[in-house]
């Protein structure tokens, strides 16, 4: 299968879709394994919101691809039939869940970024992007609220919950630099979002008596299709059915 090359905005739309889908796939591993029934449902609800966002972006990406390249892509072909190097999600989305602390810290870092992103994309000149951002931000606002409260609860909780939260921040922080690095295909300058994002993170960390890491090495590559070793495993599980039984439906 040849690698797909798409023009300017298409790659950016795919990047937004891929990040939402891959994090949803990761979070879905908690389904039936949550720490308590109510939180199992909470993380699953967030996961379904992310899948909904991914679908909207994929549908739009498919329409852009089909109108410019004479192809017949759908949301399903884009999600299930692209290879590792074609996925443009942020690396933080593909990292393992590890434990509940990693899961909620990642959700907080990512959703806070999404919040700033959608806030900005609500003003985008592209009507479809504007509409998806306007719809998604209400969901994202809740994801931020939910995950921020968990970060505070664990960070300022017991010795063990604090230890786990510190480990999660140490492991995940190096993947936040990628939020704000621009690709030529980006439809907006994402580096502009950093200040508001960092303010939000700093406030919540302060309340959780956690400190914000400074001047550490930042990973990147996800937006270029260069991934960690974890993405291949996610895709092989997620895409198995469509690869094994092409076109299968239920």
């Amino acid at each position: 299968m040849s690698t797909m090359h798409f023009s300017k905005n298409i790659n950016n739309v795919l990047h937004l879709a891929d990040s939402a889908l891959i994090l949803a796939q990761r979070n879905s591993e908690w389904c039936a394994h949550g720490p308590i029934l109510e939180q199992d449902i909470a993380i699953t609800n967030i996961t379904l919101d992310l899948i909904g966002q991914a679908r909207n972006f994929y549908q739009y990406a498919a329409s852009l691809i089909n109108s410019t390249n004479q192809k017949n892509e759908t949301e399903d072909t884009l999600a299930y039939l692209r290879t590792e190097r074609e996925f443009l999600n942020l690396l933080i989305c593909e990292l393992p869940n590890v434990d509940w602390a990693h899961t909620v810290v990642r959700q907080f870092l990512f959703s806070s970024f999404q919040q700033q992103l959608f806030l900005a994309l609500q003003e985008n000149t592209d009507d479809a992007i504007q509409a998806i951002a306007t719809k998604s931000i209400k969901e994202t606002n809740y994801h931020v609220k939910w995950s921020a409260e968990w970060v505070i609860r664990l960070g300022d909780g017991t010795l063990e919950s604090r230890e786990r939260t510190l480990n999660a921040i140490e492991a995940l922080w190096p993947y936040t630099g990628e939020f704000f690095t621009n690709e030529p295909t980006d439809m907006m300058d994402v580096s502009l979002l950093k200040k508001a994002w960092l303010d939000k993170i700093t406030n919540v960390f302060l309340e959780a008596s956690l400190s914000v890491p400074e001047n550490i090495f930042m990973h990147s590559g996800g937006k270029k299709g260069v991934h960690t070793e974890h993405l291949g495993f996610i895709l092989s599980e997620m895409q198995y059915l469509q690869r094994m039984y092409p076109g299968a439906q239920w």
Binding site: L37, I41, N45, E149
Partner: peptide, 20 residues
Amino acid sequence: SVHAADAQMAIENARDVYTR
């Protein structure tokens, strides 16, 4: 009913369990 550590969490759990 829901289980929750505090009132805020109870409201959010209720939101997730009963208003989907």
